[in-house]
């Protein structure tokens, strides 16, 4: 019953789209049938390798760099009050700067290739991961660190077996925020200047008045957003299964 209710509105919306667009003669609002045809023609699977794969690769590469650097730098800043104080103005500015404002200058500096896009995605995603890591590392229970020290764990073991696992739930919250931002950055970098990518295809369809293609690209981007978010949740559920179990118990 619940499933039916939850699916009711999405199904109704699609039906509404289908019926209202079926007889549409407006060039901007093509019949859903045509959109689906364009979707199949482009994305199953002609452009999959040439455009979808580059988009997703850039997003994941940027996010991965941001995650690795963010956790490493965040852990260092979280451990050292002095270091955090010293870099605080730079960090505050970096995280408050609307990341999309960096896109024009990144194109000037690094061109419109993959490197430029990955770099700007990584830079903007860095801050949510970094700040969450700082917070998380600071919040690690000192009792656990006493245990680790009294049993003579090496600093590397303390990092791997105590500090990072303890910080993981909050770090994941940061990565999740970063994922949303990475997606925005991916699309905007491709809309601004690119030679391939889903965003690029969608925007160039506008310039050639291939309206069904635009709608198809939009649908694909939407599905991609949903898919990435779902995949992330699966990953999180795996890595943090202990945390989920513990929280549900309390």
């Amino acid at each position: 019953m619940r499933i039916v209710l939850r699916l009711l509105v999405p199904v109704l919306l699609v039906l509404l789209w289908w019926t209202t667009s079926a007889g549409s003669t407006s060039p901007f609002y093509p019949p859903l049938r045509e959109v689906l045809a364009a979707f199949q023609e482009s994305w199953l699977f002609t452009r999959l390798g040439s455009d979808l794969v580059p988009s997703v690769t850039r997003l994941l590469a940027g996010l991965l760099i941001a995650t690795v650097v963010g956790i490493a730098v965040g852990a260092a800043l979280g451990r050292s009050r002095l270091l955090m104080q010293a870099l605080n103005p730079a960090v505050q500015f970096g995280r408050s700067l609307p990341g999309t404002a960096l896109i024009p200058i990144s194109v000037v500096l690094f061109g419109i290739g993959d490197g430029s896009k990955i770099l700007v995605i990584a830079f903007v995603c860095l801050f949510p991961v970094l700040l969450n890591t700082v917070d998380a590392v600071r919040g690690v229970d000192p009792h656990l660190e006493d245990v680790a020290r009294s049993y003579r764990l090496t600093p590397a073991q303390r990092l791997a077996f105590v500090l990072l696992p303890a910080a993981a739930p909050q770090i994941f919250a940061g990565i999740r925020t970063a994922l949303g931002i990475a997606f925005i950055m991916m699309v905007v970098t491709e809309l601004y200047a690119a030679t391939n990518g889903v965003g690029f295809v969608t925007l160039s369809a506008r310039n050639s008045f291939d309206v069904p293609q635009m709608w198809a690209g939009t649908v694909l981007l939407g599905l991609l957003g949903v898919a990435l978010s779902a995949l992330f949740l699966v990953l999180q559920r795996r890595v943090l299964s202990w945390h989920i179990g513990m929280t549900e118990r309390n």
Binding site: L5, V9, P10, G180, L191, G199, M214, G217, T218
Partner: peptide
């Protein structure tokens, strides 16, 4: 119950996705 499905579906979609269509 009515809105949860659509919210869960639409929420992960970044708004920039709609930009080309809106511009059109």
């Amino acid at each position: 119950e009515l809105l949860l499905g659509i919210v869960e579906f639409l929420r992960p979609i970044p708004v920039v996705v709609y930009l080309p269509i809106m511009l059109l």
